[in-house]
Write a protein that binds this DNA or RNA. Structure first.
Length: 274
DNA sequence: ACCCGTGTTCGCTG
DNA sequence: TCAGCGAACACGGG
């Protein structure tokens, strides 16, 4: 369930579950593979591996292994990690299972199978694709307002679309891009090149706040996503036709940009809709 | 049965 | 070169 904050929650889980532990058995049902990785090469490289502290950049994860190299993971649309004891049933949608020396098993499940798994040849994963193509990580090393404005000023695309380009800034997906723009009171259709310094500052605050909604709510298992049957935790996402919770005047609108649904309040976010 | 979808990539067109 | 569009990937859920 992955945009940056959800992936960060998964990284914390992997840190608690994997770091310092060794692999005794690998079960792998090939889903998407990182270019250059084959199932056989992954199994060879992971044989008996001892895992170190996992790292995240944007929505990408890497778990370095003692002695060199790292397991690469991307959750796609529906990737999820869970943990069980070795004698418990294999979860539905399993794509990867890491059996550890302490008797626990860490499973990677992915119903929709858009996830990717791979092997990176070095601990310095940022040297390699896909890490080397990412813009600044919006949680770990967020740009300054000026840097963000400069990054966005290079494009004539709508802000919502530019913000989702992982090469511009890394971590925002379809939900949090709409949410952050709503918090910053900026219309999603504004061109990246039109963003002012003040607006860039508002946008950074909006991004931080929208991420915080997920990170502070981390109870270890459930993440606030709309598809879980829980009430929609978001302010505009999935709320087309509803009254804006902030101004109580606008009715949330929905439009498709770059093939993805964008939601916004036409009253709060009216600035130069362009 | 139909439509939608948290991500990413590729090909085509203007 | 850039931007926009549609499709593709594969499958569950409303």
């Amino acid at each position: 369930m992955p945009e940056l904050p959800e992936v960060e929650v998964h990284r914390r889980h992997l840190d608690a579950w994997l770091a310092g532990h060794s692999l005794v058995e690998l079960l792998f049902k090939p889903a998407g593979m990182l270019a250059g990785t084959t199932p056989a090469s992954l199994e060879t490289n992971l044989q008996g591996a001892r895992f170190l502290a996992p790292l995240r950049r944007g929505k990408h994860l890497a778990v370095p292994v003692a002695g060199g190299g790292a397991l690469y993971l991307h959750l796609g649309m529906t990737g999820h990690f869970s943990r069980r004891q070795g004698d418990e049933a294999v979860p539905r949608f399993q794509t990867l299972s890491l059996h550890l020396e302490n008797g626990t098993v860490v499973d990677f499940t992915d119903a929709r199978r858009f996830s990717k798994v791979g092997w990176l040849p070095d601990h310095d994963v940022t040297r390699y694709a896909p890490f080397n193509a990412l813009g600044p990580d919006l949680l770990l090393s967020p740009p300054s307002a000026k840097e963000l404005r400069d990054l966005l000023s290079r494009t004539q695309r709508p802000l919502k679309v530019a913000l989702m380009d992982q090469g511009v800034v890394a971590g925002l997906g379809n939900i949090h891009a709409s949410e952050a723009l709503w918090r910053a009171r900026i219309h999603p259709n504004r061109l990246g090149s039109s963003l002012t310094l003040v607006e860039a500052r508002q946008l950074l605050a909006g991004i931080a706040a929208t991420f915080q909604l997920v990170l502070q709510d981390d109870d270890g298992e459930t993440l606030p996503y709309v598809t879980q049957g829980a009430p929609n935790p978001f302010s505009v996402y999935g709320r087309e036709g509803e009254r804006c919770a902030r101004c109580r005047k606008g009715e949330i609108e929905r439009a498709v940009q770059a093939g993805r649904s964008t939601f916004w309040c036409p009253v709060c976010q009216s600035s130069n809709a362009g």
